[in-house]
Amino acid sequence: MENIEKIRERLREVYDPELGVNIVDLGLVYEIRDEPDKIHIRMTLTTPGCPLHGAIVGGVRHALRDLAGDREIDVDVVWEPRWSPAMMSDEAKQQLGFF
Protein backbone atom coordinates (compact mmCIF):
# COMPACT_ATOMS: atom_id res chain seq x y z
CA MET A 1 0.00 0.00 0.00
CA GLU A 2 2.86 2.27 0.90
CA ASN A 3 4.45 1.57 -2.49
CA ILE A 4 1.22 2.35 -4.29
CA GLU A 5 1.15 5.76 -2.62
CA LYS A 6 4.79 6.34 -3.58
CA ILE A 7 3.96 5.50 -7.19
CA ARG A 8 0.94 7.80 -7.07
CA GLU A 9 3.09 10.63 -5.73
CA ARG A 10 5.60 10.11 -8.57
CA LEU A 11 2.77 10.23 -11.08
CA ARG A 12 1.83 13.65 -9.73
CA GLU A 13 5.02 14.90 -11.40
CA VAL A 14 3.56 14.10 -14.84
CA TYR A 15 1.61 17.05 -16.17
CA ASP A 16 -0.81 17.31 -19.05
CA PRO A 17 1.18 20.02 -20.88
CA GLU A 18 -1.94 21.64 -22.35
CA LEU A 19 -3.95 21.82 -19.13
CA GLY A 20 -1.01 22.30 -16.76
CA VAL A 21 -2.53 19.84 -14.25
CA ASN A 22 -0.94 16.56 -13.15
CA ILE A 23 -2.46 13.31 -14.37
CA VAL A 24 -3.42 12.06 -10.89
CA ASP A 25 -5.47 15.15 -10.06
CA LEU A 26 -6.98 15.05 -13.55
CA GLY A 27 -8.33 11.59 -12.67
CA LEU A 28 -6.52 9.94 -15.57
CA VAL A 29 -4.95 7.16 -13.46
CA TYR A 30 -7.46 4.33 -13.02
CA GLU A 31 -5.34 1.63 -11.42
CA ILE A 32 -1.86 1.15 -9.96
CA ARG A 33 -0.51 -2.37 -9.34
CA ASP A 34 2.88 -2.96 -7.77
CA GLU A 35 3.85 -6.49 -8.76
CA PRO A 36 7.08 -8.44 -8.24
CA ASP A 37 8.06 -8.28 -11.92
CA LYS A 38 6.38 -5.05 -13.03
CA ILE A 39 4.59 -1.85 -12.14
CA HIS A 40 1.27 -1.77 -13.94
CA ILE A 41 -0.55 1.49 -14.61
CA ARG A 42 -4.03 1.54 -16.16
CA MET A 43 -4.87 5.02 -17.26
CA THR A 44 -6.74 7.08 -19.80
CA LEU A 45 -6.50 10.49 -21.49
CA THR A 46 -9.01 13.33 -21.55
CA THR A 47 -9.98 12.56 -25.16
CA PRO A 48 -9.41 9.58 -27.46
CA GLY A 49 -6.62 10.42 -29.88
CA CYS A 50 -5.18 13.01 -27.51
CA PRO A 51 -2.24 14.51 -29.41
CA LEU A 52 -0.12 14.33 -26.26
CA HIS A 53 -0.61 10.56 -25.87
CA GLY A 54 3.01 9.62 -26.53
CA ALA A 55 4.44 12.40 -24.37
CA ILE A 56 2.23 11.62 -21.36
CA VAL A 57 2.85 7.86 -21.52
CA GLY A 58 6.58 8.55 -21.88
CA GLY A 59 6.36 10.88 -18.89
CA VAL A 60 4.75 8.12 -16.79
CA ARG A 61 7.56 5.69 -17.69
CA HIS A 62 10.19 8.27 -16.88
CA ALA A 63 8.63 9.23 -13.55
CA LEU A 64 8.54 5.58 -12.40
CA ARG A 65 11.94 4.51 -13.74
CA ASP A 66 13.89 4.54 -10.47
CA LEU A 67 11.02 3.10 -8.41
CA ALA A 68 10.73 0.23 -10.89
CA GLY A 69 14.42 -0.61 -10.90
CA ASP A 70 14.83 -3.67 -13.16
CA ARG A 71 11.11 -4.27 -13.33
CA GLU A 72 8.97 -3.61 -16.36
CA ILE A 73 6.73 -0.52 -16.40
CA ASP A 74 3.49 -1.54 -18.08
CA VAL A 75 1.32 1.43 -19.10
CA ASP A 76 -2.07 0.43 -20.42
CA VAL A 77 -4.03 3.32 -21.92
CA VAL A 78 -7.74 2.44 -21.98
CA TRP A 79 -10.86 4.26 -23.22
CA GLU A 80 -13.36 2.44 -20.99
CA PRO A 81 -14.55 3.77 -18.69
CA ARG A 82 -14.44 7.01 -20.60
CA TRP A 83 -12.84 9.88 -18.70
CA SER A 84 -15.21 12.54 -17.47
CA PRO A 85 -14.55 15.87 -15.77
CA ALA A 86 -16.24 14.52 -12.63
CA MET A 87 -13.12 12.37 -12.12
CA MET A 88 -10.96 15.43 -11.46
CA SER A 89 -9.87 16.28 -7.92
CA ASP A 90 -11.08 19.52 -6.33
CA GLU A 91 -7.58 20.97 -6.79
CA ALA A 92 -7.66 20.27 -10.52
CA LYS A 93 -11.15 21.74 -10.87
CA GLN A 94 -10.04 24.86 -9.06
CA GLN A 95 -6.91 25.17 -11.19
CA LEU A 96 -8.96 24.96 -14.40
CA GLY A 97 -11.57 27.38 -13.14
CA PHE A 98 -14.13 24.54 -13.20
CA PHE A 99 -17.57 25.62 -12.12
Binding site: E13, V14, Y15, P17, E18, G20, P51, L52, G54, A55, I56, G58, G59, V60, R61, H62, A63
Partner: peptide, 22 residues
Protein backbone atom coordinates in the same frame (compact mmCIF):
# COMPACT_ATOMS: atom_id res chain seq x y z
CA UNK B 1 3.41 25.66 -29.43
CA UNK B 2 2.09 22.09 -29.50
CA UNK B 3 4.21 21.23 -32.54
CA UNK B 4 7.35 22.64 -30.92
CA UNK B 5 6.68 21.31 -27.41
CA UNK B 6 6.17 17.76 -28.73
CA UNK B 7 9.35 17.99 -30.76
CA UNK B 8 11.59 19.58 -28.14
CA UNK B 9 10.10 18.60 -24.81
CA UNK B 10 7.89 15.58 -25.54
CA UNK B 11 10.57 13.13 -24.37
CA UNK B 12 11.06 15.16 -21.19
CA UNK B 13 7.44 15.04 -20.01
CA UNK B 14 7.37 14.13 -16.33
CA UNK B 15 10.82 15.58 -15.65
CA UNK B 16 11.15 18.53 -13.28
CA UNK B 17 11.58 21.89 -15.02
CA UNK B 18 9.89 20.84 -18.26
CA UNK B 19 7.75 23.74 -19.49
CA UNK B 20 4.07 23.34 -20.27
CA UNK B 21 2.57 24.59 -23.54
CA UNK B 22 1.43 27.89 -22.02
Amino acid sequence: PFLWWTRKYGHRAGQPGTPILA
